Amino acid sequence: MQQYLTVLEKSWFELHHHYHFSEPQKVFNKLIAAYSEKQRAYHTLQHLYECLVLLKSIQADLIDAHAVELALWFHDAVYDPQVKDNELKSAELFEQYLIQDLSIDIVQKIKRWILATHKHALTDELDLQFLLDIDLAILAASPERFAEYEQQIQQEYAWVYPDIYLIKRKQVLAHFYQTEPLYQTEYFQQNFEQRSKGNLRGILDGK
């Protein structure tokens, strides 16, 4: 966890330097606590860390990298696998914490982006395309990390009867596999698409 915290703290206080949050340490602490909740196994500090590291490698391609980074911080700030309005609650939490520090335009844009991580619908908005692709980058992870990811998701849904979980999970992964292309940006299509489809095929074939 410590290796994640070092990077996360640097990211957050660079955002503070850009946006001038009124209570940066308080909000940082609340977000770290949120991503450390016991019902989480995948939607954790590790996921946030992986998203932010990936963002840093492509930020030159973004129009407003700071806004994308802030949206990533809050996109899973509320997560309960037994409800369906996590994105809405995450967007509302973002507004609650930072509305006094940001312009209304930035607040509305980031809220809209957080809500978009629910359905991952096609968009022609470049920064949002990258945000959504980053959120799905785990599907193109190394075989070891992808296997860990699958175990983490199963752990979050341990409350579901195992046979039902396996059916529903394969439906989700089949949807990703059948989406052509899976990723919306050219960068992710070139660098992540093939690996993600290989990982997904392996699960769907029962390997």
Rank of each mutant, 00 (worst) to 15 (best):
L15W: 06
R40Y: 04
H20T: 12
K56I: 08
Y49L: 01
A41W: 03
H47T: 04
N29G: 15
E9F: 14
S22M: 09
W12P: 00
L31E: 02
L54R: 11
Y35G: 01
K38D: 12
E50A: 10
E23A: 13
L31C: 05
Q25R: 11
N29M: 14
A34M: 03
Y35F: 06
E37N: 15
L52R: 05
I58S: 10
Y49W: 09
N29P: 12
A34H: 02
H18L: 09
K26G: 12
I32L: 06
L55H: 07
E23I: 13
L55C: 05
K56H: 12
T6Y: 14
V7W: 06
E37W: 13
F28D: 01
K10C: 08
S11A: 07
L55S: 03
S22V: 05
A41P: 02
E9D: 13
S22A: 11
I32S: 03
K56R: 14
E14K: 15
A41F: 08
V53I: 15
E9S: 13
P24I: 03
P24V: 02
E50L: 13
C51S: 12
K10P: 04
L54D: 09
V53D: 05
Q25E: 14
V7S: 08
K30L: 14
E37T: 13
L15E: 06
P24K: 03
S11F: 03
S36E: 10
H47M: 04
L31H: 02
V53R: 07
A33I: 14
L52V: 09
S11D: 05
H17C: 10
L5W: 06
V27M: 10
V53K: 09
Q39A: 12
R40S: 04
L5H: 05
Y49P: 00
L8I: 04
F28Y: 12
L5R: 07
S22Y: 06
Y35R: 02
Q46S: 15
Y19M: 02
K26D: 13
H18R: 11
L8S: 01
K38A: 12
F13G: 00
L45K: 09
L5E: 07
T6F: 15
E14C: 14
H17G: 11
Y42G: 02
T6A: 15
Q39K: 15
A41L: 04
L55E: 05
I58Q: 08
A41G: 06
T6M: 13
F28V: 02
S11M: 01
L48Y: 01
L8N: 00
V7G: 00
S57W: 08
S22D: 11
V27E: 08
H16D: 12
E23T: 13
Y19H: 02
L5G: 01
L15A: 10
P24D: 03
E14M: 15
C51W: 03
H17T: 11
P24Y: 03
T6C: 13
L55P: 00
P24G: 06
H20E: 11
L55G: 01
H20S: 14
R40M: 06
E23S: 15
R40N: 05
H18D: 09
Q46C: 10
Y35I: 03
L54Y: 12
L55A: 07
T44M: 08
A34G: 04
Q39T: 14
E23R: 15
H17V: 08
Q59P: 07
V53G: 04
H43E: 05
Y35K: 02
P24W: 01
L55Q: 06
F13H: 04
Y19T: 00
L15K: 05
K10W: 11
E14D: 14
K26N: 15
A34E: 02
